[in-house]
């Protein structure tokens, strides 16, 4: 469904990603793990079209994404839930969710999708009139993922969805990710919490200094001695 071929990405003069090749198949959960500043977020930004300079070829559902601006990639069902949630702080929870369905592919079904999301996340319905900025971190993450689902994603990319959350919320997020996948959405997740991420993932990639150093199924990576030493603290 998604193929990256030898991607090099730059912020100005600084090269952040080197020769990244990876793929995601329909129905998978794929995790990208690695230390801080390894370039994990940059991979997602390169895919969503929000990095200024990207070399190489990214294919999504058979379409070459080169030259397609970010807002049109959303239109193709390629949805990026950014790190730090990036809600619209003075808009209400409901307005935030509604903005998720801005893309034409989702706009007509806005009300229907919204009802589904309120059914999945009843806490958001209780708080729909509250300003998003006034919610707790966990609730904000619910809104961020819900806003991503409002766009009717084919591929949902989650950037550090558990960052700064309480352990109970971390578990909830990973359970919810499984639930989303079971509803037919493919998932690409970037996480510092490598153990948890690899536990839910079908496959994973390990990123180090902008390069992929290991890949395999979630279980293989969890069992890899070198990786356990370096990242999993075991």
């Amino acid at each position: 469904m998604l193929h990256l071929h030898n991607i090099n990405s730059f912020y100005g003069e600084i090269q952040v990603l080197r020769e990244i090749s990876l793929h995601v198949q329909r129905g998978e959960i794929v995790a990208i793990v690695g230390a801080n500043a390894a370039g994990k977020s940059t991979i997602l930004k390169s895919i969503s079209g929000t990095v200024l300079k990207v070399e190489g070829k990214i294919e999504f559902q058979g379409n070459d994404l080169t030259g397609i601006p970010a807002h049109q990639r959303t239109e193709m069902g390629l949805i990026h839930v950014p790190e730090g949630r990036r809600l619209f702080p003075t808009m209400t929870v409901q307005e935030n969710l509604e903005m998720g369905a801005y893309a034409k592919r989702a706009r007509l079904d806005r009300q229907k999708t919204l009802d589904q999301i309120y059914e999945m996340l009843p806490r958001l319905q209780e708080r729909k009139k509250q300003q998003a900025g006034s919610l707790s971190g966990g609730e904000q993450q619910m809104v961020a993922i819900g806003r991503g689902l409002m766009a009717k994603p084919e591929l949902l990319m989650l950037d550090e969805p558990t960052l700064g959350l309480a352990p109970i919320m971390v578990q909830w997020v990973f359970d919810f990710i499984r639930q989303i996948r079971d509803s037919g959405v493919t998932i690409l997740i970037v996480e510092q919490n490598a153990t948890k991420a690899l536990e839910v993932a079908d496959r994973g990639y390990v990123l180090e200094n902008g390069q992929i150093v290991l890949e395999g199924t979630g279980q293989e990576l969890l069992n890899n001695q070198a990786l356990r030493k370096a990242y999993l603290g075991a």
């Binding site: 929000t50 959303t74 839930v81 809600l87 307005e95 903005m99």
Partner: peptide
């Protein structure tokens, strides 16, 4: 609302399409 969203977070609004 899209104008307000773009005002509050240009990056996030782009990701909404």
């Amino acid at each position: 609302k899209a104008i307000r969203a773009a005002a509050q977070d240009r990056f996030a609004a782009t990701l909404m399409g």
